[in-house]
Amino acid sequence: MAEAHNEPSDKLYLTIAGSLAVLTGVSYIGDLMDLPRGALICLVLAVAVVKATLVATFFMHLKVDWTKVKIMIIPAILLACVLVFALLPDITLAMREKPGKKPPAEKSKSAQAAVKTQ
């Protein structure tokens, strides 16, 4: 019966579960190691993508069903990515107004004053 559904064996399921647990440990240890912020973000996001891919491929049976359901999954993931990129300009605008950083207009005024005193 199991073969009729083309599902992976129980042994493979347990191997994947072990891999997921190890990957969770890698993220956890990376967080404890006080890595530089950029490196930590890259590490934990890469681990999350690998874990999600393993779950989708083997537990959700996309290894077998991908060709049948990709037409529904690909547009959803693409639109989801578009949503994030559409909001990126908001992040950039806000980062330009960090507290303690002089706005460009003030800088130009001080520059003008310096020119006048000379």
Binding site: V69, M72, A76, A80, V84, A86, M95
Partner: peptide, 29 residues
């Protein structure tokens, strides 16, 4: 088919929340 369509809407739902988090978090000093 219905379950995968539902999951596709769920991807969009959670991605909306996650995108809001990214915009609000990284837009603040």
């Amino acid at each position: 088919l219905a379950m995968w369509l539902f999951l596709a809407t769920e991807i969009m739902f959670f991605m909306g929340l996650i995108a809001s988090y990214i915009a609000l978090r990284f837009g603040r000093a």
